[in-house]
Design a protein around this nucleic acid. Structure first.
Lengths: 198, 198
DNA sequence: CCATAAAGCTAATCCGATTAGCCGAGCGCC
DNA sequence: GGCGCTCGGCTAATCGGATTAGCTTTATGG
């Protein structure tokens, strides 16, 4: 029954593109409206203000990221899956720094929340990788969080240019992945007492 | 030659406290002025606007963090140093979420930049730890960045409440540290070819 | 004591987000 | 084949916070 031109999805997509181009910090209703050939107030017919727009961009980003990494690990396992995941992840944040930045500060409530669910899908891919390494269920949560910290930290530092990771960044990224790979492949044998208290 | 009451340091300190209390997002000139018993425009005599204030808070945070972790690893080495560092780091970001958030988005240029230098001091502590593990110089950069990603990611997710890490967060944190510790203690023997290309 | 520069203040400006309320266009239905 | 309804856009206005301009006060140091 609608009629017109823009849809909420259009606005969010354009917002994401704009954020990627000019930087998340400078994302503004006015600029977005202009890009869409519309006046700022009109956007409020589609999104519920700037905060809502930001959150929707975060959801979009996390959703896209989830799809990308899911595809990347398809049919792979172990080292192969991890490397492929990492490559896909790195490529995404490099191609879409604005989008990813949107996810960094976003508040996440709990199940049912779109952003939570989208994040959960990404985590599910990570979990699949870890299962492939034979990580026990009781360690899964911890290993998952460790991976998350690593990738999120990388993304955050990378998108914020957080330490002229220019040039040899990729090399460090690969080293990092190699480090995790080794760590995960060493332990499966069994929970032998490698000291671990506090 | 000066005269009065406030100093730039006072303003920054109060801003940091305010950010810790009400959240970095809500840090505003007006609110800060009020807390200092002064009108908003007066703050401009001490800091060069909101962006400058934010950056100074980031510098303060990174500086404090540097001191805290340096103290934590004093006289320790290996696993002990890593654990102590981690504990100090975790305690700092928990006690000062606003401050740390300020560092997350801040732009870092290069040597000479206060924030860069403060970050470098934190990294130096990390490097000291890694040296204690016998990490080779040619891997140092990569190992350093890996640690940085891990801790930064942890901090970012933690301060943003990025996945109800309520309760058992500490346990995961310890697991993460244990994982790194194992990884670092395994390799020193020599760069045997554990696959590492691309 | 007086000249001065720093530190505050008030009033004013700017800008971007947001709200209020009006308007034209397609569409379902009679 | 026209009528009213709803949607999407628009203009004008409001709001709020940051920032600027320019005045005032005060302590200090000569």
């Amino acid at each position: 029954m609608p009629r017109g031109r823009l849809t909420a999805a259009d606005v969010v997509r354009a917002g994401a593109e704009l954020a990627d181009e000019i930087g998340y910090q400078d994302l503004a209703m006015g600029a977005l409206a202009q890009r869409l050939g519309v006046r700022a107030p009109s956007l409020y017919k589609h999104v519920d203000g700037l905060d809502d727009l930001r959150r929707r961009i975060a959801v979009l980003a996390m959703t896209e990221l989830g799809e990308v990494v899911r595809a990347a690990i398809q049919g792979r396992a172990g080292t192969d899956a991890l490397a492929s995941f990492a490559r896909a992840f790195g490529a995404y944040i490099t191609a879409h720094p604005g989008r990813y930045t949107a996810t960094i500060g976003a508040e996440v409530s709990g199940p049912g929340d779109e952003l939570y669910d989208a994040s959960a899908r990404v985590l599910e891919s990570m979990a699949a990788i870890l299962r492939g390494y034979g990580v026990e269920e009781d360690e899964m949560v911890h290993a998952l969080r460790t991976l998350r910290c690593l990738f999120h930290g990388y993304a955050a530092l990378h998108t914020a240019n957080g330490f002229q990771w220019s040039g040899d960044t990729d090399e460090s990224f690969d080293w990092m992945i190699g480090f995790v790979d080794r760590g995960l492949r060493v332990r499966p044998p069994g929970p032998e007492g490698v000291q671990d208290r506090r």
